[in-house]
């Protein structure tokens, strides 16, 4: 099991590095796909198969396809140096690095239980909690999705000329 963890962790990191460094739009999206798939498998390894497959369906199956279709429709080409390597970029990197170090220090002192008690991975307890205890957040999220759909349509609609 632990070997699978390392394998998918490595693949996820390769995907993340690719998204960070690649300049070709389609290849960048494919690196993201690699990261999404690996994270999905990591969910399954962590005993959350429901989430893992939802992750693969939503992120890998829909979000990246949406990106690829958008790239193809707008015929976005490679922009060789869109990386900001001036003083501003350097400063940003410094802060990102500082954030990383602070989080790492926090993680070292985080109270993580030594013997983890995995939650049951079956979908039933998840559904019980989602539709009883957390029904209102669930409904709000669904309204949010509706608003996003309408917003996206309004954003890209070609307005009739004056």
């Amino acid at each position: 099991m632990i070997y699978f963890f390392w394998l998918f962790a490595l693949l996820a990191l390769i995907g993340a590095l690719g998204v960070l460094l690649e300049t070709h739009p389609v290849r960048g999206a494919l690196y993201l796909l690699l990261a999404f798939l690996s994270i999905g498998f990591l969910y399954i390894l962590a005993g959350a198969p429901f989430l893992g497959f939802v992750q693969i369906i939503v992120y890998a199956g829909a979000v990246v396809v949406l990106f690829l279709v958008a790239i193809a429709v707008m015929s976005l080409r490679r922009i060789p140096d869109d990386r900001d390597l001036g003083p501003r970029g350097f400063l940003a990197l410094v802060f990102a690095g500082a954030f990383f170090l602070v989080m790492l220090a926090l993680l070292r002192h985080a109270p993580v239980p030594a013997a983890p008690t995995p939650t049951p991975g079956a979908p039933q307890p998840l559904a019980e909690a989602l539709f009883r205890q957390y029904l209102i957040p669930f409904e709000i999220v669904s309204v949010l999705l509706l608003v996003a759909i309408v917003g996206a349509i309004v954003l890209v609609r070609r307005r009739p000329g004056p």
Binding site: V19, G28, A29, F67, D82, A92, A96
Partner: peptide, 24 residues
């Protein structure tokens, strides 16, 4: 992963890649 994504968002100037890094 979060650090790599955050670095991507602040380093890249191409909106497409900024979005990809946000997803990450």
């Amino acid at each position: 992963l979060f650090g790599l994504g955050a670095a991507g968002v602040v380093l890249r100037r191409n909106t497409l890649f900024m979005l990809l890094n946000l997803e990450l």
